[in-house]
């Protein structure tokens, strides 16, 4: 029982990250009917930006280097101890790290849409797909050359000193896992509310259902698309930064596997369906954990994907998608 619960916790944490990435795939698909293959790179870029910000706020050596070049940045030297050691500072630093990473990655997403996808919006869909693949390779290689192939992600001192949270029996959750899980839930809930309740959310849904009609109702389609390309990458960046915090490293090609898993999660849930992507993410995370816990981690992808194929045979549109795949 304890074993099972522990695996469940492992899976839900991982699943939360998958869900965050999956939302980016599903949002863009919902509106443009396009698979944004560069989205996995938003996750990666977000991780690298998070790496940069966290170093800028918390690493003495980075602050020293930066201050040498840009003297006005030297104020960071005095804030560094506050950020790294105190609880309030830690929370503030996390908020800044995630906020900056999300906003910059979101802007990157908008830029990519503007320059790599929008000019191709009226071309055959394959063109945008190729453009997305090219964007993905470009970003990977840009990060590889500009930053490096792998960077050790700093662990904030405060976080390192936190003890694992015991639940019951021998079950314990690492603090970072708890933070990841709770943040994912909050973000997913907020996004769900945003899309279902607010004016802009409704505009997004309307646009995804009928772009012409939405435009004639006064919705600026390009703005809605830009918004979509902001939200998806921003969420991906949060997941990427979590990846760095949890695993202690960011690599230029780290988007590959989580990207594939998240894309699968989006398809499993019914691509274009937000709640589906969330459900799909958690489901894949849990499936993977159980498969590797009870059978073997070497077979986990085989088992996970076998189950996926089964589900898609019986529900081709995904769990929460329409049973008939339309618009294809």
């Amino acid at each position: 029982m304890e074993f099972f619960v522990q695996l469940l916790i492992d899976g839900l944490t991982l699943g939360g990250m998958y869900a965050l990435i999956a939302l980016g795939f599903t949002l863009v698909y919902g509106i443009l009917l396009m698979i944004n293959f560069a989205h996995a790179e938003m996750f990666m870029t977000g991780g690298f930006i998070g790496y940069g910000v966290l170093n800028l706020l918390g690493s003495e050596s980075t602050i020293a280097t930066v201050s040498d070049t840009l003297p006005f940045m030297s104020f960071l030297q005095s804030t560094q101890p506050f950020f790294t050691t105190t609880a309030v500072g830690f929370i503030l630093m996390m908020l800044l790290t995630f906020g900056i990473s999300a906003v910059l990655t979101g802007l990157l997403g908008i830029t990519i849409e503007r320059f790599a996808y929008r000019p191709l919006r009226n071309s055959p869909r394959l063109c945008a797909l190729i453009s997305a693949l090219g964007m993905s390779l470009f970003l990977q290689n840009f990060v590889l050359l500009a930053v490096g192939h792998r960077m050790v992600f700093p662990t904030p001192e405060f976080l390192a000193n936190l003890d694992a949270v015991p639940l019951f029996g021998a079950i314990r959750i690492a603090p970072i896992d708890l933070i990841i899980f709770i943040t994912c839930l909050v973000l997913l809930f907020t996004l769900d509310r945003f899309v279902s309740k607010t004016k802009l959310g409704k505009a997004m849904r309307a646009t995804s259902q009928d772009k012409d009609a939405a435009g004639l109702m006064g919705i600026n389609i390009n703005s809605v698309i830009a918004l979509t390309f902001f939200i998806g990458p921003a969420l991906g960046a949060v997941a990427g930064t979590f990846f760095g915090l949890k695993y202690g490293v960011v690599t230029f090609n780290m988007g590959l596997f989580p990207g594939i898993k998240a894309f699968t999660a989006a398809v499993l849930g019914g691509i274009g369906n937000l709640r589906g992507a969330m459900l799909g993410g958690f489901l894949i995370g849990v499936l993977e954990a159980l498969a590797s816990g009870y059978i073997s981690i070497a077979y986990r992808d085989v088992i996970t994907f076998a189950i996926l194929i089964l589900i898609l045979i019986f529900r081709p549109g995904g769990l929460l998608g329409e049973s008939v795949v339309e618009k294809v």
Partner: peptide, 17 residues
């Protein structure tokens, strides 16, 4: 914003390279 991003990258890269 992109330029700022690139600068951040470059500075951080200097540190680790």
């Amino acid at each position: 914003a992109m330029a700022a991003l690139a600068l951040t990258f470059a500075l951080v890269a200097c540190d680790g390279d």
